[in-house]
Design a protein around this nucleic acid. Sequence first.
RNA 1: GGCGACAUAGCCAAGUGGUAAGGCACGAGUCUGCAAAACUCUGAUGCGGCGGUUCAAAUCCGCCUGUCGCCU
Length: 315
Amino acid sequence: MTEKQKIISVVGPTASGKTRLAVELAKIFDGEIISADSMQIYTGMQIATAKPDKDEMQGIPHHLMDFLPPDKSYSVAMFTDDAKGCISDIASRGKLPILAGGTGLYVDSLLQNIKFSEEERDEELSRRLWIQYEENGIEYLIQKLLEIDPPSYERLKEGKNPKRIIRAIEFYYTTGKTITEQNEMSRLEQSPYDAIKIGLGFTDREKLYDRINLRVDIMLEKGLLEEVRQVLGSELSQTSVKAIGYKELAPYFSGENSLDECIQKLKRETRRYAKRQLTWFKRDKEINWLYVDEEPDFETLLGKAVQIIKGRLYG
RNA sequence: GGCGACAUAGCCAAGUGGUAAGGCACGAGUCUGCAAAACUCUGAUGCGGCGGUUCAAAUCCGCCUGUCGCCU
């Protein structure tokens, strides 16, 4: 079998410095960046998503960023398709693909080569199931799941997560297969990628939270309010409405809450998001963690990352 | 200085004599087509302090402390 495609993956919570590290690594290793971020894909959502500007990109090509209008939905399946295409394209030009982003599900699905089924989602059925959930409660759906797919019933009954349970039921009715079968099928093909994973972490969580709070203040100075005003005035998809920044500031524009209250909310939601990201990435034992608050400066951090990568790239 | 109200977990807060609801935050975790999503778990031997009444007090009484309001 042919050698696997080498790829660098930079992960970490929001505001940990992934963007900067990825750009510097791209300069050193002659790479191009593929963003694995479910919100930076959207055009017009620049400040709140902390999308790098021309200056920060330093001439390094960034793929899967800033290409989709906010009224369009997006999903993991689309991401893995798009990203695979990007990787082939970058590699064919002799460059090194560098995946950088905080959307853990996107990163893992791509690197593990998860195969999503061909069938499209059935939004209508999904909506009907949500209505049933709201009317009859979660137990009703859990029972339904027991009838069609006992293994996933066992797996999902404790969590009581309507979203996961509804998807399992929806999947069965749209494809005739159970989500359990699909999950097995999705892992049959080995991943064509050999990822060198760098994680940006913090020994002291408070340090990360300080950075998040500060970054929100900087966003406000950069004109976040004007951006929010514009985005809130346009059509948003199911995916883009979820972006942190816009919904938190909305009550300020509608007069329901003071600006200060909204800013506090925005900071808190961003901190909570960072915590969830950490929980996600912690599970991956292949990640080489570098602790931002333990390094004297960025150069040292970069140096360590370069060492790790060199060892794997040429070792 | 006088009068009154209030004082319950990090914050908000229910509870008016029978053995401390709930929400938020924090922390931990789950995760296969909306993932910046959705969801799960988790906190007070104690209710400002000290006495008193009672079989029993966060709940009633007194004093003290603090906060707020009104009056002078």
